[in-house]
């Protein structure tokens, strides 16, 4: 129909112009990424010392060791809450509600809305509930629970996707052998969905590690003390970056960023690697 115009000069120039525009954009994106990494490495790597990583935080020498402890505990608290709650919610929606009906729709919309809320709003919620109403003050527990609420919709959604991807033939096969619903879910459906669920959980841990807005309002940013209990205030790696940068330690902030970057990269590798490993073991 439009063969004349398609082969015409004008559109050819447009196409090659588009191609160069794409190349330019790619170069800009890669350059931006390289610049960030390079700049952080250049400023940070010199400061990466035993003292910074694992030393004691004193008036003369800073350390991110308390942040390691804080981050680790936040991960444990948030994962312990969000993973079981998220997985069981998804199992309920997919396996018991058959993924249809009004309730499922409402929960789906709620989860999607929650996933889109800016994290500072979760932070404010955590602040109002745990810091103020419960009077816990700033605490690891309050921060961890708030993080759990933040990652919950992500876990529910990706678990749902993984469950829906399990062929119905597996469920029928198991039920037809006399295994009940519960055994079918735990022995057949969840293991079949494991690779997707594990990947989602690890990526959620990545979000916990990277999160700062929630923690500014719930955790307290006490950078120099190792938290003595889950109700103590504390700090995290991301918060330390903010603290160092705004209190005259820009290079230490960069060094902490290097550590954080490495952890996120490792987590991403772990997520894909573990996902693939599980799939391979199942023979897919």
């Amino acid at each position: 129909m439009n063969s004349k115009r398609e082969t015409g000069r004008g559109s050819r120039t447009l196409f090659s112009g588009l191609k160069y525009l794409c190349i330019l954009c790619t170069v800009v994106s890669v350059a931006a990424l390289v610049a960030v990494v390079f700049y952080i490495l250049k400023n940070g790597i010199g400061k990466l010392s035993w003292q910074l990583l694992f030393g004691e935080y004193t008036g003369s020498a800073v350390s991110i060791f308390p942040a390691f402890i804080g981050t680790l505990r936040l991960i444990v608290i948030a994962v312990l809450i969000a993973v079981p709650v998220g997985i069981f919610s998804a199992v309920y929606l997919v396996e018991y509600m058959n993924n249809k009906g009004k309730l499922v729709k409402v929960i789906r919309i709620a989860a999607e809305t929650l996933a889109g809320i800016p994290s500072i709003v979760y932070g404010l919620f955590g602040y109002l509930i745990f810091v103020r109403t419960f009077q816990w003050g700033y605490s690891l527990l309050g921060g961890g629970i708030t993080l759990a609420i933040m990652i919950l919709p992500v876990i529910i959604r990706s678990t749902e996707e993984s469950l829906l991807a399990v062929p119905d033939g597996f469920r029928e096969g198991s039920l037809a052998l006399g295994a009940g619903k519960v055994r079918t879910i735990f022995r057949i459906v969840l293991p079949s969905a494991a690779s997707g669920i594990v990947t989602a959980v690890i990526l959620a841990v990545g979000r916990i590690i990277s999160e700062s807005a929630v923690l500014i309002l719930t955790l307290g940013m006490v950078v120099n003390l190792i938290p003595s209990s889950v109700l103590s205030p504390g700090t995290s790696l991301a918060l330390d970056i903010y603290y160092f940068a705004s209190h005259g330690y820009p290079d230490e902030a960069a060094a902490t960023s290097v550590v954080l970057l490495l952890m996120v990269i490792l987590l991403n590798l772990l997520a894909t690697g573990l996902g693939k490993l599980i799939k391979r073991r199942q023979g897919e």
Binding site: A176, L177, G178, A179, Q282
Partner: peptide, 27 residues
């Protein structure tokens, strides 16, 4: 469940579970 144990079923599309041959039979 006992009924389905006594009355086995084979489906149109083969549906082995994503686990070992042994574990499939031992299920």
């Amino acid at each position: 469940n006992l009924l389905r144990k006594k009355v086995g079923m084979v489906f149109q599309k083969p549906n082995p579970f994503p686990m070992s041959i042994y574990d499939n039979i031992a299920f």
